[in-house]
Design a protein around this nucleic acid. Structure first.
Length: 888
RNA sequence: GGACGUGUAGCUCAGCGGGAGAGCACCUCGUUGACAUCGAGGGGGUCACAGGUUCGAUCCCUGUCACGUCCA
């Protein structure tokens, strides 16, 4: 006998361990099985599971379990990302806390060793957390982006792209993070709106004949100004173009130039030009051949290109000093408050500087072209489709991708430099040495590039590097291209786009056929969860409180596309209750001898009730299968919830009770067998979403009756495929009538406050022959659920009985003694009014010649029926009302 | 400024051309051995607004307003 409730705390770890030990997470090696593969979006090795991961991984697991049960060779390949900056940050912080050396003191080799040490100790956190969710990843294939195999793939890709001239070294402005002293890509820059000032500075004309006022939010950069620009059409300044101002403090003459860039409407219309420290100014500088003067060092402190008194100052200290100097010189014209966007590093949170450095770039525009075409041609589809617009937008305007980082943790760039700075880009140092010897005519010592690659460079190879590429492995042949990628929209650019570009370029095939973009999880107020807001919901805590299945069901149900998910505990609790409901239904079946029958075939079932549930089960199985195949996660959970709770538990089990306890042994046996069959189907259908509780019930019911055709875990059982022939419209109609008769009768009872203990008869007054038969055959059932003593067939509604109309049939409850006549009159009047309104509308519609002519025949017919039915019901209730009037 | 999305019951959301649905919350009733993590019943909505297309619009089109996100 089952316990009263499911205990996730003890069952989940036990079941997961059993699954894992069974080897069932690995794809079947049946060569006939169609491959279905998913690669996990590798979480940062530093990560711990947040609710976004929980959603993303739940959906992947639902899908992979579903396809596995459908008999496919289902591979969910897990792994983690070395996460360059994030990981380096964690270990550096630990070093600082331990109070010893900085990474520079430690030296590169020792520091990297420390990071590996950290990874060995703490890197597995998130993996274990995924297991608590029930993630059925094939852990035997787990990968890490810094694995030797993946590193080889990275080197191969870098070298190949270099030889194809798609990777090159260039000196240009990059986004420089002064905290980490590294370049970062455009995507890693986060614009933040902040309060600031426009300082209006007067620059005196060189000949002393006047001044020109420029406004800036960054006074310190004036130390690197090399021009003042005005718009060529700006009448105010036409005469000044070509002349010069003397840059205060620096005391350097700089030209006044005309360029389209300044907006005459803004400020004074004149702008200072600092090519080394502003992206726009850099372009202006290029157009006018202006000198580029860099005044910062790697820490964004003022360097020796500035006047002595500024050297070594932090940029913000220098800013203050510059403003003070202008004030002292009498050249500060105005300070204007403003709100403006300032670029910040997404990891460091500090203000990022445009900074002139040598970096490695990928010619992303070239790689983007086939990646755009693949989506245009439908080789890969976005679900929901709208996201392709975001993708196109980005891809069609793609900029060169800066891939070098001045970090130590990551894939070291496979470039070696000779004494003259010539670069040898090869997969191994030995090969580089060989090339160098050939080039220089003698063995020459080389120095490897100090930098590492952007983390996304290696994650961009993930779908094929994890399968063994560049080796021609069996896995690669079998599982590439992968089938579905499930990820958040926030990394479409970072990751999805790059996998598309690199995947197509190196394998000639798209990396996945379908990209499902899942929603973003927010708190109950719709706010983005963040630690600083204190509104984070820890998925592990939720698993502790409600069990993994409840959380999974909630996330799956709310995964609605193109929408944010607002998660609340109440909702999770509701789905926990749903699990309990199923648990108890199973318990009921167990108590009532519902055991699998040898050779049971649902098509042979005779009792209408059983035929009905068989049909509903088939309908549900088909609909759930269709939904999951299309990533319709919300739809699938909705179908399951309704079917299991509202059909199976609320009606089927209730209807089955009299049969299960009755004397008709044939009907009883059939009902027991049907129930057991339906329950097995239910467990299978629900398993992808709620794997634990279903697996537990599967095990607990294993010994009930005939052994199952499939031994072993539910996880690897076959997903139901039920034919439409199992649906019997006649049985459906019968049950529908019974349900309506009961529901309406209950409504009458409650509205009129008939005591629950009262057991009147149910009078069947006017019915079709069929309805009469159905009601007769199911009299005990109706009696039980409507709490009436019996069904009796009469010719007219007797005095004091309360009639109600169901599908054209008139039924009545003789409950006059219990009820308040006024309440009954009110009930009937309300009913009549609503029917009258309905009749009015329908009649009007049918009176419209255009409608009758142009609307489809079945819609017109439906309205005719509706009208007739409503008119009949209204007439019956009106006569009841009339009688009531007399009685009163 | 551009792109995308969203405005449906008190709350969270389904539905997306033929009389608006669910869960939660609320009110009433209920200890009939599966389940009170439950059962039964009920109240509650000019489907943001304004036009248009259509026999018919919550659903399609246009515009407006509000909110959100991303990109400049």
């Amino acid at each position: 006998m089952l316990d009263k409730t499911f205990d996730p705390k003890t069952a989940e770890p036990r079941l997961y361990a059993a699954w894992e030990a069974s080897g069932g997470f690995a794809p079947t090696d049946d060569p006939a099985a169609e491959p279905f593969s998913i690669v996990i979006p590798p979480p940062n090795v530093t990560g711990s599971l947040h609710i976004g991961h929980a959603l993303n991984n739940t959906l992947q697991d639902v899908l992979i379990r579903f396809e596995r049960m459908r008999g496919k060779a289902a591979l969910w390949l897990p792994g983690t990302d070395h996460a360059g900056i994030a990981t380096q940050m964690v270990v550096e912080r630990q070093l600082a806390e331990a109070g010893n050396h900085s990474r520079r003191d430690l030296g590169r080799e020792d520091f990297v060793a420390k990071v590996w040490e950290w990874k060995a100790k703490s890197g597995g956190t998130i993996v274990n957390q995924l297991k608590r969710l029930g993630a059925s990843c094939d852990w035997s294939r787990e990968r890490f982006t810094l694995d030797e195999g993946l590193s080889a793939a990275v080197r191969k890709v870098f070298v190949t792209l270099h030889k194809q001239k798609l990777i090159y070294r260039d000196k240009r402005l990059v986004n420089w993070d002064p905290q980490f002293q590294t370049a970062i890509s455009d995507l890693e820059v986060e614009p933040r709106e902040v309060d600031g000032f426009y300082w209006h500075f007067a620059y005196p004309l060189e000949d002393g004949s006047g001044e020109i006022v420029v406004a800036t939010t960054r006074p310190e950069t004036m130390l690197a100004d090399t021009a003042v620009a005005v718009h060529p059409d700006d009448e105010r300044y036409k005469a000044l173009v070509g002349r010069a101002v003397r840059l205060p403090i620096v005391n350097r003459p700089i030209p006044i130039i005309a360029d389209e860039y300044p907006d005459p409407e803004k400020g004074s219309g004149a702008v200072k030009i600092t090519p080394a420290h502003d992206f726009n100014d850099f372009m202006v500088g290029k157009r006018h051949n202006l000198p580029v003067i860099n005044i910062f060092d790697d820490f964004a402190r003022i360097n020796d290109n500035a006047p002595v008194e500024y050297r070594g100052l932090d940029r913000f200290v220098a800013r203050k000093k510059v403003v003070e100097a202008f004030e002292a010189l009498g050249l500060l014209r105005e300070i204007e408050k403003t709100r403006h966007t300032v670029p910040h590093g997404d990891r460091s949170g500090v203000v990022v500087e445009p900074y002139l450095t040598d970096q490695w770039y990928v010619a992303a525009d070239v790689l983007a072209k086939p990646a755009i075409k693949a989506i245009e041609d439908g080789d890969t589809v976005f679900v929901p489709k709208n996201w392709e617009k975001t993708y196109f937008e980005w891809m069609r305007n793609i900029q060169p991708w800066c891939v070098s980082r001045q970090l130590w943790w990551g894939h070291r760039i496979p470039a070696w430099y000779g004494p003259d700075g010539k670069a040898f880009v090869e997969e191994t140092e030995a090969e580089a040495m060989r090339q160098a010897e050939e080039h220089y005519g003698r063995p020459t010592p080389l120095r490897q590039d100090e930098d590492v690659l952007d983390t996304w460079f290696s994650s961009g190879l993930w779908p094929f590097s994890t399968l063994g590429w560049p080796e021609k492995t069996d896995d690669l042949a079998r599982f590439y291209p992968t089938h579905t990628l499930i990820t958040g929209f926030d990394i479409i650019f970072f990751w999805v786009a790059r996998m598309m570009m690199q995947g197509i370029h190196f394998t000639g095939e798209v990396p996945f056929k379908r990209i499902f973009i899942n929603a973003l999880v927010r708190d109950a107020e719709g706010k983005k969860m963040s630690k600083s807001k204190g509104n984070v919901m820890d998925p592990l805590e939720l698993v502790d409180d409600y069990g993994a299945d409840a959380l999974r069901f909630t996330l799956t149900a709310m995964s609605g596309q193109a929408r944010d998910i607002k998660l609340s505990r109440q909702r999770i609790e509701g789905y926990r209750n749903f699990g309990t409901k199923l648990w108890n239904a199973t318990r009921f079946c167990q108590m009532n001898g519902c055991a699998r029958a040898e050779g049971f075939d649902p098509v042979d079932v005779k009792v209408p009730l059983n035929r009905w549930i068989v049909g509903e089960t088939a309908r549900t199985a088909q609909a759930v299968t269709a939904a999951l195949a299309e990533c319709g996660f919300g739809e699938a959970t909705e179908l399951l919830y309704r079917f299991i709770w509202n059909q199976f538990c609320d009606w089927y089990v209730e209807f089955a009770k009299p049969l299960l306890t009755g004397d008709d042994e044939t009907a009883k046996a059939e009902t027991q067998a049907t129930t057991a069959w339906a329950l097995d189907v239910i467990l299978k259908l629900l398993h992808p979403v709620m794997p634990f509780i279903t697996e537990e019930l599967w095990a607990q019911t294993a010994d009930l009756g005939a052994p199952r055709a499939e031994a072993g875990f539910l996880m690897t059982a076959r997903f139901p495929e039920l034919a439409s022939e199992l649906i019997d419209p006649t049985a459906d109609a019968e049950i529908a009538l019974l349900i309506a008769a009961i529901t309406e009768g209950r409504s009458v009872r409650q509205e009129l406050n008939v005591p629950a203990s009262a057991q009147p008869a149910l009078l069947v007054v006017e019915t079709s022959a069929d309805q009469r038969r159905i009601l007769t055959e199911n009299a005990p059932l109706v009696a039980r659920l409507l709490r009436v003593s019996e069904l009796s067939f009469v010719d007219a509604v007797p005095e004091g009985a309360i009639p109600y109309v169901v599908e054209g049939a008139t039924l009545a409850l003789p409950v006059a003694e219990f009820i308040d006549l006024a309440a009954e009159r009110a009930r009937l009047s309300k009913e009549v009014t609503s029917l009258a309104a309905d009749i009015d509308r329908t009649a009007k519609k049918l009176g419209n010649a255009d409608f009758v002519v142009r609307a489809p025949e079945e819609v017109v017919e439906e309205n005719r029926e509706r009208l007739a039915e409503a008119q009949a019901a209204k007439a019956k209730l009106e006569s009841a009302l009339a009688r009531l009037g007399v009685a009163a």
